[in-house]
Amino acid sequence: MIRINEMFKKLYKISLVVLLAIFLLYVFNEIHDLASKSYLSEHYISKGVQETGAINLVTSVLYDYRSFDTLGEATVILTASAILAFLVPLRKVAMHGTKFLIIVHQTMIFIVPYLAVLGSYLILFGHLNPGGGFVGGVVLALIPIVMTITYCIEFSEYKFKPNIKTLLEDLGSICFIILGLFGIVTGSNFLASGQSNLGLGNPGELISGGLILCLNIIIGIKVGAGMAKIFNSLIKGE
């Protein structure tokens, strides 16, 4: 009897998944036949460079047209890292696999500067090349993560104090809002960059794109600090 019950439960779960798959397949099949409209994306492609001053159109959408969403996403990352730092027990546990050869330890010394340069490049040239604050921030976060893995968590937290990471995260979010208020001060709306009297510069130069460059730097620092904090909190687990 129990076995039949178990079988029935399994069948029930499988049939639920299969039903969902059939439904989604049907939806996608039906929608695929319709012509999709894209006036918004066409506007972004044709007018994006002159309206925002950023050559990388993804950044121009992320940090200018829809920068309010980015504020929300940054808040989600901040909340996630705050939850992890809060919920994970404070006990420190020895990590597995910390016995590396000296070769690995020495190589790290050479890798870290490259990571720093790559991360800052991705952040600073986010509006010109593929990249941007989120990507660059994650690359920067690799530095403390790599330190945690190769040396130990104490060393990584000695070099980058948890308090400093939290401070950077919160300061980054505050600066995002303050930069947004700059738009209100200059007589336009919240988070306005091209519409306020801020010069957009020549597209293609490093100092161009109005607020986009500043927002990239802030988001880069914030995301980097947040990711490092999340990794260190998770690895502390029991």
Binding site: Y44, R66, F68, G183, N189, F190, L191, S193, Q195
Partner: peptide, 12 residues
């Protein structure tokens, strides 16, 4: 109505 970043229908 309040348009974030003054983008009108292009933005939020």
């Amino acid at each position: 109505l309040y348009s974030i970043g003054n983008w009108g229908l292009l933005g939020i």
